[in-house]
Design a protein around this nucleic acid. Structure first.
Lengths: 204, 204
DNA sequence: ATAAGATCCGGACCGCAGTCCGTTTAGATC
DNA sequence: GATCTAAACGGACTGCGGTCCGGATCTTAT
């Protein structure tokens, strides 16, 4: 068994322990500049060079602070991500605890679809890391949450891999492609997810 | 309903209609050089510059012939891909026609897992196209094949999206990560797929 | 054979993410 | 306030996929 911290996202907050003042200032400048550029030009034309110029810092500084473009995106997403995590771990049912496992599974799918529709462009970039997209802490947390729900629902056929399979079904690219390129409504996607998990957990 | 040609892959064969002789010669040189470089250096260190030098052609020629790195990979994969397509469309049961739909679904998963384990590195690169990885002809064919099998098995809950969901489960990156980084055996993956499709098509 | 013209060639060029390293600066110590 | 050091800075640099266009080459018509 492995452990995933509650909110496993590196925070962009200034109160980080032992960070030099200029470093904190530059981080803040970069985050502000990044949000501005995203608002103005869209996610497609955000480059690390432009960002550095806009923030008035050197390019090296950008990468020292965030490691990579994906790392920057994760930081930008951290608030929304933490919010979603809180909802499915501690929030009200059916997404949070209190509802039967199957209902929580269904709600998780809807929630994640909504999350992707709102932050999909950032999330997609956050996944194109040098590291594998499966090793992102948030993804590991989703996975273990699904696995927990599957076990709670009585699933006894390799819940670990089954959680991975269900997780793949909610892949960011797939959802975005379905909605944007194929014109499939989020409701239809959510309904399909409901069918899927219902059939998967149904006991013999 | 849409139509997917049997072997929807652009072939690297020299008999292509109306191609200038130097063009055909260079395509052949490039394919040979690409296979040599892949054998010698591995897929990770194949760059388009190296390839051009090795084949003794200009870089522009590489991109005119194959459009992109992904296009080159698709061409390199076309034989293996066509072979797999023939097997699940016309080959012997349980993968080919003749077996019950559920058995064909199960066999399709095993077959695809095997395919990925053999050609995964190339396939992964072939998917990182400028175009969306869902619009690759081969992927469309797999999808419609799964949809057909689901319908044949009596699935009546949005077979189109359900086929997409199952397809996502067999995602190249996911399978490779499971086997290589997590040490999960292909047999266990195949068994999990069997469980999944069995539960999905089971009628009420 | 030769001329015309469509096709193809090659390598300089671009934009991008990410790295490197000499220089600067924050902040702790005296 | 002077000094010292670890940390941060910045921008030139690399390697990559992909584009561009003037010039070379194959093919066809005459």
């Amino acid at each position: 068994m492995f452990f995933v911290s509650l909110i496993p996202i590196r925070s962009g907050s200034p109160g980080e322990d032992s960070e030099r003042s200029d470093a904190a200032r530059n981080r803040e400048r970069l985050l502000v500049a990044a949000r501005e550029l995203l608002d103005e030009c869209g996610v497609g034309s955000l480059t690390m060079d432009k960002l550095a110029v806009r923030a008035g810092v050197g390019k090296g500084t950008v990468f020292r602070r965030f490691g990579s473009k994906a790392g920057l995106m994760m930081t930008l997403l951290s608030d929304a991500e933490a919010d979603f995590q809180r909802k499915f771990m501690f929030g009200p049912p059916p997404l949070g605890p209190g509802a039967p496992p199957l209902e929580r599974l269904v709600a998780f799918g809807s929630g994640r679809i909504g999350y992707i529709l709102e932050f999909g462009d950032l999330a997609r970039l956050a996944e194109t890391s040098t590291r594998n997209k499966f090793e992102v802490p948030a993804v590991l947390l989703w996975h273990s949450h699904l696995e927990m729900l599957l076990r709670a629902a009585g699933m006894n056929a390799d819940p670990y891999l089954m959680a991975g399979a269900l997780s793949a079904t909610l892949d960011t690219d797939r959802i975005l492609h379905a909605v944007r390129a194929q014109g499939i409504t989020p409701e239809r996607l959510a309904e399909s997810w409901r069918e899927l998990v219902t059939r998967v957990v149904r006991q013999d």
